[in-house]
């Protein structure tokens, strides 16, 4: 992924270029949105409650008269940072576990597989509520909870990719020539596993954005006055009769971000030839090759 030719190959694909531009825009908003916002996102203009778009408030005001555009710009930071943090935690837990379980063989495999089964069984929202109820309600707790539940996806993808490479001839050749396990892992395995991890990370970041928004909607993670996309949607819910179009703005921003991440994931997969689980041998008939969709979407 860090290889410049891969980035170039991605840039040549129109859908990936579009996705990268949108994501760059969202990243810019996340970094500088708060500073560039035309109004203070917490300032309540109590004389201008629930107004439509105007020259002063380009996207109108919410139920206590706060500027929607400013809240959207400031809210990008918390929404995006939360999702990225959760994915980072999931990756840090899942990828090494996947490598180790595939490399050390059946000794650890059964246990790690069952742990990942268990984490898959726990629904995100219920688990996040339980974490909030026992360890306290905060952004860090919520993100750790989501990260832990995301880790099985990284674990499974890494493990599947590594298992496929375990018996490849050049790996065996390297081992025969006396390469240490660590060296083979770093030199041969990692470069092949990385595209799979990148595809998964892009997909999962999109899903994590949705989960973070869902938690904010439930009042978990980010505490109310601070703006987030999910929190804005949550407060819009009470005023749907007066302002039925209000949820559109955060929803569109979310759709653009998540959609771009999905496009990017597909483009990375096409550019690097990453698959969900590399097969050990070519299949006998080509028609059986793409039968199963990749079940890597995170439940919200």
């Amino acid at each position: 992924m860090t290889h410049p030719t891969t980035i170039l190959a991605l840039w040549r694909v129109p859908s990936a270029r579009f996705a990268l531009l949108v994501l760059a825009g969202v990243g810019f908003l996340a970094l500088f949105g708060g500073a560039l916002a035309p109004h203070d996102p917490l300032q309540q203009y109590t004389d201008r409650v629930l107004q439509g778009p105007s020259a002063d408030h380009l996207l109108g005001t919410d139920y206590v008269g706060r500027d929607v555009l400013s809240r959207l710009m400031e809210g990008t930071r918390l929404s995006v940072v939360g999702a990225v943090e959760a994915v980072a935690i999931g990756g840090l837990l899942g990828v090494p576990a996947g490598l180790v379980s595939a490399w050390l063989g059946p000794r650890l495999e059964w246990v790690t597989l069952r742990i990942s089964d268990t984490l898959v069984v726990l629904p995100f929202t219920v688990f996040a509520i339980a974490v909030a109820g026992t360890l306290g309600n905060g952004l860090q707790q919520a993100m750790v909870a989501i990260g832990v539940l995301i880790s099985p996806i990284f674990y499974r993808v890494t493990r599947a990719a590594t298992l496929g490479l375990r018996k490849v001839q050049y790996v065996e050749a390297a081992e025969l020539m006396g390469a240490t396990e660590w060296w083979t892992l770093r030199k041969h395995i990692w470069s092949k596993v990385l595209p799979n991890v990148a595809v998964t990370a892009a997909h999962v970041t999109g899903s994590a954005l949705l989960v973070v928004a869902s938690l904010a909607f439930l009042g978990l993670g980010v505490t109310p006055p601070a703006p987030t996309w999910g929190g804005m949607l949550s407060s819009d819910l009470g005023y749907l009769a007066q302002q039925p179009w209000a949820p559109v703005y955060p929803a569109v921003l979310m759709m653009a971000t998540v959609g771009s991440l999905n496009l990017l994931a597909d483009a990375i997969r096409d550019a690097t030839g990453a698959t969900a689980s590399p097969r050990r041998r070519p299949r006998p008939s080509p028609s059986t090759s793409v039968r199963e969709e990749r079940p890597d979407v995170v439940p919200a």
Binding site: S214, L240, P247, A251, M255, G259, N262
Partner: peptide
Amino acid sequence: CSLLGTLPPFVIGMALIVVFAVK
């Protein structure tokens, strides 16, 4: 299908409320 995948379910629920309950 790809559009539905980019939205959290509660936004779809809000859209349904707007259409069927409010309008």
